[in-house]
Computed example of a mutant assay.
Amino acid sequence: MTAGSAAASRGARKIWLMFIVATVFGAVLVGPYLLLGSDNSRLDVNGGVHYALLVTHIFTALIALVLGPLQFVPAIRTRRQIHRTIGRLYLFAGVLPSALAAVPVALLSGRLITQIGLTIPAVLWLITGTLAYQAARRHDYTQHQNWMMRNYALTFLAVTSRILVPLLLLAQTPFITSAGSIGDRAPSMIPIGQSLGWIVNLIAAETLIRRRRPRSARSRRDVRPSPSGGSARPEDEECGV
């Protein structure tokens, strides 16, 4: 096995691991909402409309959370029609409705940290999704993948925020005098975890994108004649629009 194929194999395993993590977390997140009872909501809601928007946001976010990693699997990317179908479902059945529902859910929460911490990533979710779609339409597959990485980083907030909250609580343990107050502080930590989560994810995505740039530059230099007489890059054969 060559170094390149070994690296690709490791990358594929990481993507499948992300898919498993996303699926498990997604199942846990939607669990309380399967029976559509507002009494089971993890978040305080102000009436039926607020709850309906919350449920819409959660279930469509689940679509984006689970489908997102599949877009980066090399074996799927080489099958253009499958890649295109998954990408459109991800954007139009997942990201778009979930982001649009997230804004009023955040604003109706009545908590400033939640309003800011969820509205900003929701807007960025829409912007990065739009830029990814436009890049694919103009066949700029490098930028398409970069924007999709940023977009899924925002999607993965559903996972990261749930990891950060316990870590934030543990960090406060030396300053807490009674065991019961740890659980009491959990609800107040959720908005902070949500606000920090998307920032952490975007930093991670940008780091990965910058690491990919030298490889992309080499791929652009390594052009070869295409059957139509022009030139084709390796990534042009992997992505569909």
Rank of each mutant, 00 (worst) to 15 (best):
Y51W: 06
Y51K: 03
A52Y: 10
A52G: 14
A52M: 14
L53T: 05
L53P: 03
L53C: 01
T56R: 14
H57F: 04
H57E: 08
I58V: 15
I58D: 05
I58R: 12
F59W: 08
T60H: 01
T60K: 03
T60I: 00
L62T: 04
L65A: 02
L65G: 00
L67N: 09
L67Q: 05
P69W: 07
L70V: 12
Q71I: 04
F72I: 00
V73D: 08
A75T: 13
I76V: 13
I76Q: 01
I76W: 01
I76D: 01
I76C: 03
I76F: 04
R80I: 08
Q81I: 14
Q81W: 15
I82G: 13
I82R: 15
I82N: 03
H83Q: 03
T85K: 14
T85W: 14
I86V: 10
G87N: 04
R88E: 06
R88P: 01
R88V: 07
R88Y: 10
L89P: 04
Y90S: 08
Y90P: 01
L91R: 10
F92T: 04
F92W: 12
G94F: 07
G94W: 03
L96W: 08
P97Q: 05
S98L: 03
S98N: 11
A99L: 07
L100F: 13
L100E: 11
L100C: 09
A101M: 02
A101C: 10
A102G: 07
V103R: 06
V103I: 15
V103K: 02
P104F: 06
V105E: 07
A106R: 04
L107Y: 13
L107M: 14
L107P: 05
L108M: 15
L108W: 12
L108C: 04
